[in-house]
Amino acid sequence: MPTITTLDVTGMTCGHCVSAVTKELEAVSGVKNVSVDLNVGEASEVTVVSDDVLPEDALRAAIDEAGYEITGISTHGSAEEFSQLADTRSEVYAGTSHIGSGSATAVGPVGISITPREDVDAATLASADAPAATSGGCGCGGCGCGN
């Protein structure tokens, strides 16, 4: 099962820093992927994916070799990561659906009203689905495809 290790790395300020950290971490045995979220002036988040838990001393040595410092480290499996994502999604969408409660709309995560297609009248759907009246039938206005 894949393991995700997150490192908080200080001192990174540019793309060269990202490149140096990435190169050193990719040389650590077992590392499959490295991604860096550069945060100038604060700790950057470096995510390392591997098949197994990586030795912390090897990660610290790689970051040290690149010229930076680890200020925090956490490791978890992909199952835990997916569980956290599912929990976050549930929190975002919790209580936002009003379908089946007497109302025919749902509210998206940022308060956008969503009306199910079956609740829109036929005339509105016909005008929305019809190709635009342009020289080409597809609505682009110039291809002349006739669709």
Rank of each mutant, 00 (worst) to 15 (best):
26 E>D: 13
97 S>L: 08
65 E>V: 12
143 C>Q: 09
79 A>C: 13
80 E>S: 12
23 K>E: 06
39 N>C: 12
84 Q>V: 08
107 V>W: 05
85 L>F: 12
62 A>Q: 01
110 V>T: 14
52 D>Q: 08
3 T>H: 05
90 S>V: 05
141 G>N: 09
100 G>C: 11
19 S>Y: 04
32 K>D: 13
14 C>D: 04
121 D>R: 03
106 A>Y: 09
79 A>L: 15
68 Y>F: 14
78 S>N: 05
2 P>K: 15
42 E>Y: 10
19 S>H: 08
97 S>G: 12
7 L>I: 01
38 L>D: 00
48 V>L: 02
139 G>I: 11
67 G>I: 07
2 P>G: 04
98 H>M: 08
71 T>H: 02
145 C>H: 10
132 A>W: 10
99 I>E: 15
103 S>V: 09
5 T>A: 05
74 S>V: 02
67 G>M: 06
37 D>T: 15
109 P>N: 06
93 Y>F: 11
27 A>T: 04
97 S>T: 13
26 E>G: 08
105 T>F: 07
64 D>Q: 05
133 A>V: 13
39 N>W: 04
26 E>P: 03
136 G>N: 03
95 G>S: 15
142 G>I: 12
143 C>V: 06
67 G>T: 14
73 I>D: 00
137 G>R: 06
111 G>Q: 15
109 P>S: 12
34 V>I: 11
51 D>I: 06
111 G>C: 07
102 G>S: 09
89 R>C: 03
68 Y>S: 08
44 S>P: 00
69 E>G: 13
116 P>S: 09
103 S>G: 06
53 V>P: 03
27 A>C: 13
28 V>T: 03
1 M>C: 15
105 T>L: 04
51 D>N: 13
102 G>W: 14
24 E>M: 10
4 I>Y: 04
72 G>R: 02
121 D>E: 14
25 L>A: 07
56 E>A: 07
111 G>Y: 10
11 G>N: 06
28 V>M: 02
42 E>V: 14
49 V>H: 14
93 Y>H: 08
14 C>W: 10
45 E>T: 12
66 A>E: 01
86 A>C: 09
121 D>S: 11
61 A>W: 03
96 T>Q: 12
145 C>M: 14
26 E>Y: 03
10 T>D: 00
120 V>A: 07
102 G>P: 11
52 D>P: 09
3 T>S: 10
139 G>D: 02
49 V>Q: 06
68 Y>G: 06
139 G>W: 12
